[in-house]
Amino acid sequence: MIDNFNRFVIPNLDLLAHGLWVTVRICAVAFAMAVAMGAAACVIRLYVPGVRYLAIGYIEFSRATPIIVQLLWVNYVWPELFGFPQSVEWAGIIALAIQSSGYLAETFRSGIEGLPRGQIEASMAVGMSRSRTFRRIVAPQVLLVMAPSIVNQLAVVVKASTLVSVIAIPDLMYDALKIVNQWFEPIEVLTSVAVIYILTIFSLSAIAKRIADYFREKYGLAAYA
């Protein structure tokens, strides 16, 4: 087993490192997009009466379809329908972003709706405008309270990103499967890759827990007291 490890994993470390870099890049971009799109969907759902139902439809669709379905859908359907994305990497990023933005929008919404009504009334009473209330009172608290859930969603993105190998994005999983198909020695490579993923996601979950504990201690913000 050590023998095979030396034969199949060590010589391919470069390839695997490159795959890990692709995974990191995709997850980072997709997550940033997901936060922005989630925030937009949430704000539209709560504050823009005319197109509310569009936002609700979008959120429900993104939460109700499995990631692999979205991945194949974006990869095969979007280029013909909208003319983009032109590369598989962007297709993967967009699919991951759509999936997570739905969950993040609901996270933001529960944060905003959980905020005590009195705070908004108080800011109106001192003459703040609606947008200033949102910027100074609502948004900072929601971000603080929801920070652990948001980091947790990053762990979910990393988990889901294993599937982008299906549309031939050369991420960590893709490289691992490539080595397996070359040598038909799956044990060491797949186990090593599984360990890499588990450690990555485990540390992200641990960070989320740390953040939650830190905020709880510092601001007493576990829930709005």
């Binding site: 889901a160 294993t162 044990i187 797949l190 599984a194 993923y197 996601i201 979950s205």
Partner: peptide, 23 residues
């Protein structure tokens, strides 16, 4: 619980399908 909550389902599926039978 921690192990399997943090393992991507796809990695687990591939591992079970390819590695487990050999082991």
């Amino acid at each position: 619980a921690e192990l399997f909550r943090n393992t991507p389902e796809f990695v687990l599926l591939i591992w079970v399908y390819y590695v487990l039978p050999i082991l």
